[in-house]
C-alpha cells in the first residue's frame, strides 16, 4: 500500500488519462447516437433530425474526421477549458457547470462534514459500549440508513419536516422572489437562506453516509479497549472522556482520511439524486434536465469533472496519508 509520492502521482496521472480517454471514447464507440434521439432504445420516439441538419452538426463537431484527429482536437479543447456547447440550453457547458457547481459542492461538503462528525461521535460512543444495546441499536440503525437510497431518506425528511411540520422549504435553493437588499447584510441573508434550503438535503446525504464512519470509529475504539496503554491511562486516573478524546481519537485520523476519500464518489452520486428531490439547482438537477433533453455534452462534462474530482481527492488523501502516517520512516514502510 505504501508508495512514494512520485509513483503515486504517476499512477493517478495514468488513471486521469484513462478517464479522459474513456470520456472521449464512450459516445464514439458505444452503440447509440447522440445526434439521433429517436434511435435510443426505450425512450419515447422523438422527432429525428433532418439529414441535412444532422450532417451539418456532425461536421461542426468534427465527427467525420478520423478518430485520432478527433482525439487531438478534443484534448486541445479540453486544455483550453472548452467543454463544448450545450444542446438544450444556449450556453457553453463549462459555464452551465460552473454556475451549478457551488450548490453541489456545498451540499456534498456539508453532508460529508456532518456524517464525519456525527458518525465519529456516535461511533466512539458505541465502541466504548461495544456489545451493549446502545451499540447494537446504533450499528443496525446506521446500517439500515446506509442501505436505503439517499433520495428515499430525502423524501422521508421532506415529508416530515417540510410538508408535515413546515420547518423547512419544500423545494429550491433559494426563496423565490427573495429580496436580499444591498450592503454587507445582503450576503449574510443570501447565505443563510441557502443554508436553510440546503439543511434537509445535506442531512439526508449525511444520514445515508453515516454508517461507514460510525463503524470505523466504533471498531477502532472497541479494539483499543484491550490495549495496555489505554489501561495505563485509565489506571492513572484519567477521566474516561479525556482517555477517549486524547488517546482514542487520534488513532482514528488515518482510517478516517482514507474512508473520507472513498466516500466521495458515493456522496457525489447521492447529491445528484437528492438534488432532484429538493429541487436544489446544482449539478444533479442539471444532469436530470440533460437526461430528459438528451443533452449529451453536459452529461459528458459532468462525468469528466466528477471522475477527475474524485481522483484528485483520492490522490490528496493518499499524499496526506503518506505525510501523516507516523509509521513512515520508522522502518515499517
Amino acid at each position: 500500500m505504501r508508495r512514494d509520492p512520485a509513483r503515486l502521482l504517476a499512477r493517478y496521472l495514468l488513471l486521469a488519462a484513462a478517464v479522459v480517454l474513456l470520456n472521449f471514447l464512450i459516445p464514439r464507440l458505444l452503440p447509440g447516437d447522440p445526434l439521433d434521439p429517436g434511435g435510443a432504445e426505450g425512450m419515447t420516439a422523438a422527432t429525428p433530425l433532418p439529414a441535412e441538419a444532422r450532417a451539418r452538426i456532425a461536421d461542426y463537431y468534427g465527427l467525420n474526421e478520423p478518430l485520432g484527429r478527433q482525439l487531438t482536437d478534443y484534448l486541445g479543447d479540453l486544455a483550453r477549458g472548452d467543454l463544448g456547447w450545450s444542446i438544450a440550453q444556449p450556453a457553453p457547458v463549462a459555464r452551465l457547470i460552473l454556475e451549478r457547481l457551488p450548490w453541489t459542492l456545498a451540499l456534498m461538503l456539508t453532508a460529508l462534514a456532518l456524517s464525519t462528525l456525527l458518525g465519529t461521535a456516535l461511533g466512539l460512543l458505541a465502541g466504548w459500549r461495544a456489545g451493549r444495546p446502545l451499540d447494537r441499536a446504533l450499528v443496525s440503525l446506521s446500517g439500515a440508513l446506509s442501505a436505503i437510497p439517499e433520495f428515499l431518506i430525502g423524501i422521508g425528511l421532506l415529508a416530515v419536516f417540510s410538508v408535515g411540520l413546515g420547518w423547512f422549504p419544500l423545494m429550491g435553493g433559494r426563496t423565490v422572489f427573495a429580496a436580499y437588499g444591498d450592503g454587507p447584510g445582503a450576503t449574510v441573508h443570501r447565505l443563510s437562506d441557502a443554508a436553510w434550503h440546503l439543511a434537509l438535503p445535506a442531512t439526508a446525504l449525511a444520514l445515508a453516509g453515516i454508517a461507514g464512519f460510525l463503524l470505523l470509529a466504533r471498531d477502532t475504539t472497541a479494539g483499543l479497549r484491550g490495549e495496555s496503554w489505554l489501561t495505563v491511562a485509565r489506571a492513572k486516573g484519567l477521566p474516561v472522556r479525556q482517555v477517549v478524546l486524547r488517546h482514542a481519537l487520534p488513532n482514528l485520523a488515518l482510517p478516517l482520511l482514507t474512508f473520507f476519500s472513498l466516500r466521495l464518489g458515493a456522496v457525489l452520486g447521492g447529491a445528484l439524486v437528492v438534488e432532484r428531490v429538493f429541487g436544489i439547482p446544482g449539478l444533479g438537477l442539471l444532469a436530470f434536465q440533460a437526461v430528459r433533453a438528451r443533452d449529451y455534452p453536459v452529461l459528458q462534462a459532468e462525468f469528466l469533472l466528477a471522475s477527475l474530482g474524485v481522483l484528485l481527492a483520492n490522490l490528496l488523501a493518499e499524499l496526506a496519508y503518506l505525510r501523516l502516517d507516523p509509521r513512515r520512516g520508522a522502518g515499517h514502510g
Binding site: P27, L30, A40, L272, A290, E302
Partner: peptide, 9 residues
Amino acid sequence: LLIVTLIGP
C-alpha cells in the same frame, strides 16, 4: 447517466 442516456434506457 452518461452511458444509459447514450444507448437508451
